[in-house]
């Protein structure tokens, strides 16, 4: 009976794992094939390995515009996630630790912001930026990406739970200013939550496709998602682009994988150390 109990979940998990990994496997295999072999070899197994050729062709195409897109994506998402996390942490911390009139009202408004999908805001943002003739600029994508109401929510919950009021009082008595206390003591206590917020924010900005689609017309400013999508819409006319789209899609998930592998270590450490205390 005990074994049966274990087998059931294992089967479900194995099926789910397979379900999630097969597309990535397919992508890896497809990106390693030459154009000629892509169509007439088994889709889920390797033919002659020409990933290297595909990569160098992709990186050389149109003066390396693809690398530029990757760099843009890292700047948009990395930069926005970093600054956005700091802002969300400060906001959530303030809402958790300071008493001031309208605190709950502000928090509720932030919470309702969680419910507004980013896609619904893209067009209004475009019209606002148009008023200031600031569309088609780096900032038109970067500034709106800094906002992360869900991060504020998480930061508040976590600050309430993990930053003891006594500690704050102690540091105040020792003469530390509020800002210094936040960065040297509270932020460190909140670190696991900050990593979570950072990751969520990173993925959200990386996947926010509509905003750059609407804002940007200059190819040199595109994030990689928009660039690959543009190429993909032209596959009918320029079939050569298909291999670039495939190889590019594979390369474009690398930063996400790295971010997760690298950061989940901090995540687990933090949660673990919190548990022992």
């Amino acid at each position: 009976m005990k074994n049966v109990n274990r087998i059931g979940p294992m089967v479900v998990m194995a099926a789910a794992t397979l379900y999630f990994l097969v597309p990535i496997w397919w992508l890896l295999v497809a990106a390693s094939k030459s154009r000629a072999q892509f169509n007439n070899t088994t889709p889920l197994w390797f033919a002659d390995f020409s990933l290297g050729d595909n990569l160098s062709e992709l990186f050389a195409y149109r003066d390396g515009v693809f690398l530029r897109w990757m760099l843009n994506s890292v700047l948009y998402t990395g930069g926005a996630a970093l600054i956005g996390t700091v802002l969300a942490a400060m906001c959530g911390y303030a809402l958790a630790k300071y008493r001031f009139p309208g605190r709950e009202a502000i928090f509720n408004i932030v919470l309702s912001g969680v419910l507004v999908p980013a896609t619904a805001l893209a067009l209004p943002l475009f019209l606002i930026f148009s008023q200031f003739e600031a569309t088609n600029t780096f900032w038109s994508v970067f500034l709106p990406s800094l906002v992360n109401p869900f991060g504020v929510y998480l930061a508040r919950i976590y600050a309430t739970a993990s930053v003891p009021d006594e500690l704050l009082e102690a540091s105040r008595l020792d003469g530390s200013g509020e800002v210094r206390t936040f960065f040297t003591i509270s932020a460190k206590l909140m670190f696991p939550a900050l990593v979570t917020i950072f990751l969520f924010h990173f993925v959200a900005v990386w996947n926010n496709f509509l905003l750059p689609l609407i804002m940007l017309g200059n190819e040199r400013l595109f994030p990689v998602t928009l660039g690959l999508y543009s190429w993909n819409t032209q596959v009918n006319q320029i079939p050569e682009l298909r291999m670039f789209v495939l190889t590019g899609a594979l390369v474009s998930i690398v930063p996400l994988v790295i971010a997760f592998l690298f950061l989940q270590r901090f995540w687990r450490n933090g949660l673990g150390s919190g548990a022992i205390k």
């Binding site: 906001c91 408004i109 309702s112 500034l143 906002v147 992360n148 109401p149």
Partner: peptide, 11 residues
């Protein structure tokens, strides 16, 4: 949300 207003101000 206020964060968004802030960003619009900055913008």
């Amino acid at each position: 949300p206020p964060m968004r207003s802030l960003s619009i101000l900055l913008t």
